[in-house]
Nucleic acid binder design. Structure first.
Lengths: 359, 359
DNA sequence: CTCCCCGGTGACAACGTTGTCACGTACGGC
DNA sequence: GCCGTACGTGACAACGTTGTCACCGGGGAG
């Protein structure tokens, strides 16, 4: 900028004015400055600008994993809102690791982002308190902040969604419904489990601990759990899966178990055209389970049978969080609020299967 | 930092030394400084640090859409490499819009990112030249830079992959193979189309323009094109789809066309257990097409039939690009290179279907 | 005893901006 | 002729760091 000023034969401040489209510069002078800028290939250093002005026009986004479709949808929505506010986005994946989350948050704060959208991995966010009181705004998305932090929070109706999914299975005649979910330490998983129990209770069905399997969505674990469920004296006729990853893993595990057992030949199984409603399984008893999954996923509608899901709105989560953040950044300062986004059930076939007839 | 110095009763510079773990500070003094830091909740302002030192320890990543699984895989890989180099990542989605790409790149440059990983949407990157000569390094991923820019580039073997996919179909007896791809203006689409023609030529098969349909992967367009293909006097017996999105859209379009035509009853169709090898279609002649798709996608293996694909390595693309970038950032300065990553064919069923027997 | 070196510390400028204030000129009204 | 005003412009400090250099006192070598 100094060079530009010298070249144009004006003072530093005049260049600054031209660069920032500030009024009060003679048109001829401005033109001379612009020529110097082009000549020297000058670009304003936003870092210095930020240092002087205080606002960085950037926000930090911390999610569990950009590569997960749920979070990448959320991510894109945040980015769009940010861009609309002339704001750039630092993105970081915590990978469900509270240490990495903390490191990223603090790194973003050291860069003096104006605000943060956080999908927390950990449950202790004490480390954020100094940053918040230093004026960095934070919004928690998908999961709430640890105790003692008074921040805006945007959640899905996890319990309600799970409740309606399980109720849907009950309405289709199921009485033994298993719950397969993520580790109970994760907020959303716990909430969905709560919804599961609420639905059972509302229908007057007993809660049976042996029908519950929660943990990391690894194929091996899920498959082992499914094996155990099927081997029960009174096995489940339906599954409720607690998130997209678990749903897919469960489908894969079922496929693997079927391959082990071997498909039945046509005895006792009804052949149905692909995609037709009301499919009946070709597989051994115990493996023809109804399924409802929490969270929609690509191609759920193209599987056989198509998978009934409780859809949550990842983009809505991101958009709402970002909008809340920018409202605060623009000076608005209402008390911290908690927003809950609705879910909705998409019946596709797998959730409408009746309990298998021949036990 | 000034406050910390005052509180601890030392000079500014001493605090700086403590904060940066520089040697030459008395242990007792350092301890006093650290207490003052904790007391005041001080965090170093990395913006100012950057201003003074020149390096920002951040890079910019521009992709087409974070929400697309291919790019989100790439994105995650870049992020991981960056984090390993203690570097933060600005992410931006261009949405295939050259203007937005340019805006994002320039915004990142104004923030003085150390380097850029770009999946270009446009083909004119003249605007980058000043930035490059200003010392910002750039690596192009997935698609090459516009003419005249001498930068590192990491690509997939698009032509080779498509060639092997089409050759696979030919090896399974197909002679009429349609190509459904993205707009020919997109580099990868053009390359894959080139591979398609190479494979035909290598097998001595004629190239028939009426078997080609390129454009945006919208359901309506793809469906119309499929309708046209099927209505040909000499319709294709196999499809090669040019990217993941197009593959999925094509599957959906086929499903829709089948629904229109209505499924056949059992006459002339062989019933097969789900997931068993060598499926035969239940659908009307003309709709039981073999398919090979470029780019793997989640659940491709769970569809009926499972979809044979040419897998490309999105994470590898991201990792390689980022590593190339960081090698340059660490001072290495070899001439710009072009890396090509291999693809590999994953046979799953849909690509091994023979041409339909009854025409 | 003198000299030199070294560990510990601090003063100061610089990084590239922008906000504040003040300067100088021209102009219209009294 | 004088004042007030408006406009165009510039000097300067400040943002929060860090690199450079200089200072001070103590201890070992000569």
């Amino acid at each position: 900028m100094n060079d530009v000023a010298t070249t144009a034969g004006v003072a530093l401040k005049t260049v600054s004015r031209v660069v920032n489209d500030e009024p009060g510069v003679n048109a001829a002078t401005a033109e001379r400055v612009r020529q110097a800028i082009d000549l020297l290939g000058y670009r304003r250093n936003d870092g210095a600008r930020v240092l002087r002005r205080g606002r960085t026009a950037s926000i930090g986004l911390i999610i569990e994993d950009v590569a997960d479709p749920f979070y990448s949808g959320l991510s894109r929505a945040v980015e769009d809102v940010a861009l609309r506010n002339d704001c750039l986005v630092f993105t970081g994946s915590s990978g469900e690791d509270p240490q990495r989350e903390r490191k990223l948050v603090l790194a973003f704060c050291a860069r003096r982002v104006d605000g943060l959208v956080i999908v927390p991995a950990g449950s202790d966010h004490g480390y954020l308190a100094p940053e918040l009181s230093a004026g960095i705004h934070a919004v928690f998305a998908d999961r709430p902040a640890g105790a003692g932090l008074d921040v805006d929070t945007v959640l899905c109706d996890n319990a309600g969604g799970a409740r309606s999914g399980v109720a849907h299975l009950i309405a289709h005649g199921h009485r033994r419904i298993a719950f397969l979910g993520d580790s109970a330490a994760i907020f959303t998983a716990a909430e969905r489990f709560r919804g599961y129990r609420q639905a059972l209770e509302a229908a007057g069905l007993p809660y049976d601990e042996s029908l519950v399997a929660m943990g990391t969505p690894e194929q091996a674990r899920v498959q082992a759990d499914l094996g155990r469920l099927i081997a029960l004296d009174d096995p489940p006729t339906a599954l409720f899966t607690g998130n997209g990853r678990t749903t897919v893993t469960t489908l894969r595990a079922l496929e693997a178990l079927r391959a082990t057992t071997g498909p039945l030949d046509d005895h006792g199984a009804t052949v149905r055209p692909l995609g037709a409603p009301g499919p009946r399984s070709l597989y051994p008893a115990g493996l023809d389970l109804a399924i409802v999954g929490f969270d929609d996923f690509e191609l759920a509608d193209m599987l056989t049978p198509a998978i009934t899901v409780i859809a949550q709105d990842a983009a809505g989560l991101g958009r709402t969080s970002a909008e809340l953040l920018f409202r605060r950044l623009s000076g608005d300062d209402p008390p911290a609020q908690r927003v809950q986004l609705p879910t909705h059930l998409i019946p596709r076939g797998s959730g409408e299967l009746p309990p298998r007839s021949c036990p």
